[in-house]
Design a protein around this nucleic acid. Structure first.
Length: 820
DNA sequence: GATTTGTAAGA
DNA sequence: CATGTCTTACAAATC
């Protein structure tokens, strides 16, 4: 492997930096020997946890619990991208299958030279591109696609992701260049004009000689590999599959088994550590020690003490805060910290948990254990396979790490002040945990080891049962619809979950994924002011009347008689709707209709006749359920349905009297810099004569044009803000405008369909929650303790599921405004 | 000392 | 790597 120093700054900061950092730089990652070593490493760790790759010709049925991407050598000794799928069988035994899958992405090429570009690319990237196929997909950006026009793409296959990355980078550069030629959406505009001028003659444009210039767009290039595979093959964690293994070389075949519902229990280990610390300081792994590790495995508790710190041996004891949260603890008193860690690692490898659970373990417990182990000459990665990955998460291929704090933050709907473990235990598990002032802990270690043990164990118990009751059922329910690892489903933002759900829907509807929209830095308004930020004016609440209202304080009402007359005239229609549509009862089954109608009319009549009244009010709490999702559904609001006149002009459905355009008013709000266009230009001119700090300490100062586009924009913005503050004595002017946007009502409904499916799923859980509530009261009436327990569990489960679905459902609304 | 700006939290 | 806006409170920055 040769490192080349071209002496030029690299555009990508991470790449550019690594090239200076010696042999461990970026390029070593694609060196074949390193990748083969990585592949062997992967398998060794998996075997450590009992996941052996199936290589025979047998058939296996198992519950899929996890997935990881990897590389394997094929019969020609080439490195091939594949996904490892981890299963457990009904008898709790484990196996792993490895599914090779060729990564791919799509490119859009000028229609008239598809063949030529295809041939050109095969030659230019021979050895990298495996093969090229032509595929047609529905492209919601394509003018007049509603009549069934499909877009033709070239689908480029690769044997592995590294090759794909290399080609992707070059093609992206070409696409960027071609797009920049004029305007942002020039490609689609060109197609628009073409389709407007002459729908049958597309070959009129002049063919380019350099075929890189004919690549108009690149699509679906940034879908994570394992997500790609799982979308295309419909493989979801938390589901059952029957796998037919076809020997060591041929890929296995996988078949979903929706008929199996029971699940084997996964082995769950929840742990928590207690450490020494200096007074009024946070524990520091470099100097402080681990005093105790307490953990629970499948409801069985363990506590390891460090007798260098703890003054005397602790005896086995029980910590059961509530009958349903049992905790019998077995104690290992170890001579020192090294023996404590040794005991912990050995126990982990003996049990081989599927899931490790912590509370904020990514930031405290894991790094602390890792550092302390290193001080004693142990490598946590080698011992139990856990290390910090590039997202800052402690992870291991064959075991998951579930940090309950992630669930609390995103899905629990608890306020920030109640997100510590104690408060969460109170709110969700409904018991008062042992509380202890951190400043007392070290003293208690020597004076009252039992008190400290109780405390330490209490955290492990809370973490374990919080996970088992709330986090586990929720994450594995979501996993069956979101094609990601359980870890990711736990940790990703709700917007990313929405996006992934949408990708699944789009793929199976044969719709090409829309590209991410890039925001233009320092955008200008029409009258030449820099736009700092733009958004919409959101919803607000209007109070018709304010004051103190109580059901026992009479209140003055002023009725509108005409409204009552209208109501009286419509009583029959309203009743019919209520009976037939809402209750689903045939109208003629009702026997006392006249009676009820007369009663209602009489009451309404009295209200009409004495319109000014003093009465005790009845106070209602009226909640509009799933309001935003329903607004989306009734108006068929979806990003791809935002159209303009040009798009509609190209659409065959746009005939006189067409009902497909829904015009909707909204309020635009922009924060505008007060400086004028000429002032802005003067500032940029000034900046171009200046020098800027080097990219890395010790480098040369850079002129303005050497800065990246983002840095330039930031510098312009900063200088402009300073200028505006001096010259105008304010940095922003807020503008609000009413705008009208057209929503196409005929657009492919995959987005609104996804929202609807998710809303209905939530209602399903709400319904099940109601059923469980009824079961609780029935069980309470019967006095059957075990039935009460199981019914209560169900109630809690369905309530947490519906609440968490609410969070993601609301995210569908916000998702369309997401940046990046 | 008044005003603007930035941040966090909750709804 | 990343749901949204609106309101309130408060501290820091700035004039």
């Amino acid at each position: 492997m040769v490192l080349q120093n071209t002496g030029r700054y690299q555009a990508d900061p991470s790449k550019g930096y690594k090239d200076w950092s010696g042999p461990s730089g970026a390029k070593s990652e694609d060196a074949a020997d390193v990748r083969i070593a990585q592949s062997i490493d992967n398998d060794n760790i998996d075997v450590k946890y009992g996941f052996n790759r199936v290589k025979d010709h047998g058939e296996y049925t198992g519950l899929l619990i996890n997935m990881n991407s990897t590389e394997i050598l094929d019969e020609e000794k080439r490195l091939v991208s594949a996904v490892d799928y981890y299963f457990i069988k009904m008898d709790a035994s484990r196996f792993k299958i490895t599914l090779p899958f060729e990564p791919y992405f799509l490119i859009l090429v000028k229609k008239e030279c598809i063949q030529e570009v295809s041939g050109f690319l095969s030659k230019k990237f021979s050895g990298l591109i495996l093969r090229i196929e032509q595929v047609t997909k529905e492209d919601l950006d394509l003018p007049n696609h509603l009549i069934g026009l499909k877009q033709m793409f070239l689908k480029l296959y690769f044997i592995n992701q590294v090759d794909m990355q290399k080609v992707k980078q070059q093609l992206m550069a070409a696409v960027r260049k071609n797009k920049a030629k004029d305007g942002q959406n020039q490609i689609y505009m060109e197609m628009l004009t073409e389709s407007l001028i002459n729908k049958h003659d597309a070959g009129a444009t002049v063919k380019n000689v350099d075929h890189m210039d004919n690549i108009l767009d690149i699509r679906e290039y940034d879908v994570p590999y394992h997500v790609r595979v799982s979308i295309d093959l419909k493989i979801f964690a938390g589901s059952w599959y029957t796998v037919k293994s076809n020997g060591a070389q041929a890929p296995p075949s996988i078949r979903a088994r929706p008929d199996i519902l029971d699940r084997p229990d996964m082995i769950v280990l929840a742990f928590d550590i207690e450490t020494t610390k200096l007074p009024l300081k946070f524990p520091d792994a470099a100097s402080d020690q681990i005093m105790m590790i307490s953990y629970m495995i499948d409801g069985q508790g363990f506590l390891i003490t460090n007798r260098e710190i703890i003054s005397k041996d602790v005896e086995d004891f029980e910590f059961t805060p509530k009958p349903e949260f049992e905790g019998y603890f077995t104690i290992f008193n170890e001579v020192d910290e090294k023996a404590l860690l040794r005991r912990f690692f050995d126990h982990v490898l003996d049990v081989r948990p599927h899931i490790f659970v912590t509370y904020n373990g990514d930031f405290f417990d894991w790094p602390f254990v890792e550092t302390r182990a290193a001080i004693h000459g142990m490598d946590m990665k080698l011992e139990i396979g856990f290390e910090k990955n590039k997202e800052g998460v402690y992870a291991c291929r064959p075991a998951m790490h579930m940090d309950c704090l992630c669930w609390v933050k995103r899905d629990s709907y608890l306020p920030v002040g109640s997100q510590n473990l104690k408060a969460v235990a109170k709110a969700k598990l409904r018991y008062d945990p042992v509380e202890l002032d951190p400043e007392d802990m070290c003293r208690l270690a020597s004076e009252a080891p039992q008190v400290l043990s109780d405390y330490s164990v209490s955290d492990a118990v809370a973490t374990y049962y919080l996970y088992m009751k709330y986090v586990h059922p929720f994450i594995f329910a979501l996993c069956t619809i979101i094609p990601m690892q359980p870890d990711e489903v736990l940790r990703k933002g709700s917007g990313t979950l929405c996006e992934t759900l949408l990708m699944v829907e789009a793929y199976h509807a044969n719709i090409v994924f829309p590209n991410k929209q890039m925001s233009i830095p320092n955008k200008m308004t029409d009258d030449g002011h820099v736009l700092d930020q733009e958004t919409y004016v959101g919803g607000h609440v209007e109070a018709l009347e304010s004051g103190v209202f109580r059901a026992d304080i009479p209140c003055k009402f002023r009725m509108v008689p005409a409204a009552f007359s209208e109501l009286i005239d419509n009583v029959e229609g309203a009743l019919r709707h209520a009976i037939e549509v809402e209750e689903g009862v045939p109208f003629d089954l009702v026997t006392n209709l006249d009676e009820v109608m007369a009663d209602i009319k009489d009451k309404l009549g009295k209200l009409r006749d004495t319109p000014v009244r003093m009465e005790r009010p009845i106070i209602y709490h009226l909640d509009v359920g799933a309001m935003y999702p329903n607004i989306i559904l009734t108006n068929r609001l979806q990003p791809s349905a935002i159209v303009n006149d040009t798009m509609c002009a190209a659409c065959d459905y746009n005939r006189p009297g067409a009902q497909c355009q829904r015009n909707m008013e909204w309020m635009w709000r922009g924060e505008v810099m007060p400086a004028s266009r000429s002032e802005f230009q003067r500032i940029t001119q000034q900046l171009e004569t200046e020098k800027f700090p080097p990219r890395f300490p010790g480098g040369l100062p850079r002129p303005f044009h050497a800065l990246s586009r983002d840095e330039q924009a930031a510098a312009e913005k900063k200088r402009l803000t300073e200028y505006c503050r001096k010259a105008y004595r304010k940095t922003h002017i807020t503008r609000v405008e009413t705008r009208v946007t057209t929503i196409c009502q005929k657009e492919n409904s995959f987005y609104v369909d996804t929202v609807r499916a998710f809303r209905d799923r939530r209602y399903e859980y709400k319904g099940l929650n109601k059923v469980a509530k009824r079961e609780v009261s029935e069980a309470v009436a019967k006095g059957d303790a075990s039935e009460i327990k199981s019914a209560k569990n169900k109630e809690v489960l369905y309530d947490s599921l519906q609440l968490a679905h609410k969070c993601i459902l609301n995210s569908f609304y916000g998702y369309v405004m997401r940046k990046g």
